[in-house]
């Protein structure tokens, strides 16, 4: 499933881009190192399927160094290491996000705008509050910013757009993270394994369900 079903005609797309650009002014942020533009081609209606791809195989990745550092820090804040699984930075979530926002598709282009604006905002906030880039903040400092924007329906008006960014980013990061084998292990997906017979659910599952 597409995390965000997209169906936009050109006019609507332009409107949205305009709105997103406007949000930059609303947030009063200064633009930082513009990311490379999207140059790649869509993979078309008949790509080779029986193959394992990695980020960057179909279209070039476009995050610049500073943006990458910010993404790395933010994915690790959202998906840190714990006793069950490694941190997002260890499973390449940043590459997934880079691939996503570099994709030559309408929906992803829209996400790109939101993500890049959000990353810029995050660094601006970090500068304002702690005179450092987001990636250079301590966990406590990063959390201070995240706490203001991590619950969309509790975010105050002035953080609303940033909170929307955070929600989209978290959604994207989780999509990349849990698609990996480490993510599977963490969340308890144990499929994609051939078996002779499809067994009834284990006793402990049935018991828990009162069956």
């Amino acid at each position: 499933m597409d995390p965000k079903p997209t169906k936009l005609n050109r006019r609507e797309a332009i409107k949205l881009v305009a709105a997103a650009t406007a949000s930059i002014t609303v947030l009063q942020q200064k633009t930082f190192g513009a990311a490379a533009t999207i140059a790649g081609q869509p993979y078309g209606v008949d790509p080779l399927l029986n193959k394992a791809y990695k980020s960057g195989d179909f279209w070039p990745l476009t995050l610049n160094t500073e943006q990458r550092a910010t993404v790395l820090a933010l994915t690790d804040l959202i998906l840190p290491a714990d006793d069950k699984s490694p941190a997002a930075s260890e499973v390449g979530t940043v590459d997934f996000i880079d691939e996503w926002i570099s994709a030559p598709y309408e929906g992803q282009r829209r996400d790109r705008q939101q993500i890049l604006d959000g990353l810029a905002w995050l660094n601006q906030q970090s500068e304002n509050r702690f005179s450092k880039k987001f990636a250079d903040l301590t966990l406590k400092e990063q959390s201070a910013i995240a706490d203001d924007i991590c619950y969309l329906d509790q975010a105050s008006d002035k953080y609303r757009i940033a909170a929307e960014f955070f929600a989209s980013f978290r959604n994207l990061a989780a999509g990349g993270y849990y698609a990996t084998s480490q993510g599977w292990l963490d969340i308890g997906y144990v499929g994609n394994l051939p078996t002779d017979k499809f067994e009834v659910p284990p006793q402990e599952v049935l018991k828990k369900l009162g069956l």
Partner: peptide
Amino acid sequence: QTNAQAPLAASNTPDK
């Protein structure tokens, strides 16, 4: 093939 091995983790796109 796992979703992680596909572009955009195998998401729906205008092509597929």
